[in-house]
Simulated assay, not measured.
Amino acid sequence: MRKAFRSSMPRFLHKMKGSIAFSRCISTIYALDFAIFGYKNKDIGCNKLPGAKDMSKVTTTHHAPEFKHVSEMEWEMGRFKNKTKFLFHPTPERPTEPNAGILNYEPGASFPLHKHDFAQVWYILEGEFQFGDKVYKPGTFAFMQDPHFEYEMKTETGGKIVFLQYPGPTTGARPIYAGRMNLKADEVKTYTTADLER
């Protein structure tokens, strides 16, 4: 591993070989691997890096990843008459779980200027969306720190956006799922001013 690493080193490192600067540079690379990824010495081919982490018990002390496919869930309705699939969402048993899933907007859909105390990240999968006076297309990420407002939105094309709403690191406010993102078609009502305040 070490031989392979050195053979692929940039030229400026080859010129430094044997120097104190070279040793420090290599040690820094190994230290960063350890600090970021928790690699053991044997994992990175280094015999001299002290304090390598033992990851053998991590499966008993940390939560395992959870995986869900969008096909595992039926479409529901959101408060702005958009279709929703929040595969992960807060529950009484897991109140800090994020709202994570896809919102599907029909052509001509819109929502008004409103605000939230939680934080969120969006990713546009399909369609074009106008927020305020700018239009955003597929491949666009949006980050909204807590607390934040959302511009009035309009879409002529319709489209899909990946939503990730999570408790605000600053406010501690949690995203809302029940009664907002999991409605049936006949439960969707005209929103009120109070609905735009949270």
Rank of each mutant, 00 (worst) to 15 (best):
T28G: 14
H114D: 07
K189Q: 07
D133W: 00
F12Q: 10
Q120P: 00
P147E: 01
K83T: 07
S56C: 04
C46E: 09
E152A: 13
E93G: 01
E187F: 02
L87Q: 07
T193C: 01
H148Q: 08
F86P: 03
N47A: 12
A173V: 00
A4G: 11
E152S: 03
D195R: 09
E74Y: 00
T84M: 14
V121P: 02
P167K: 09
E74P: 01
E76W: 00
E128M: 02
V135H: 04
T155E: 00
K68N: 06
E66T: 12
H116E: 04
R2P: 00
K184H: 08
G168D: 02
K57N: 14
Y177P: 02
A21V: 09
S23F: 04
T171L: 03
V70I: 10
N182G: 02
T171F: 08
K189F: 04
A64P: 07
V188D: 05
M9S: 13
A52K: 07
K83C: 04
M9E: 15
H148T: 10
E66M: 12
S8E: 15
D117K: 13
G45C: 03
E156D: 08
I124G: 12
R174P: 00
F88E: 06
F12P: 09
A119P: 00
K184A: 10
D33T: 11
P167S: 02
A21T: 12
S23M: 02
H89V: 06
R198G: 12
M16Y: 05
G45D: 10
K42V: 09
C25A: 15
K85R: 15
M73I: 02
K53N: 10
E128K: 12
F111K: 07
R180Y: 08
M9H: 11
P65F: 09
Y191K: 01
K160V: 03
G78T: 03
I176V: 15
E74S: 13
P112V: 08
V70N: 06
W75D: 14
L183C: 07
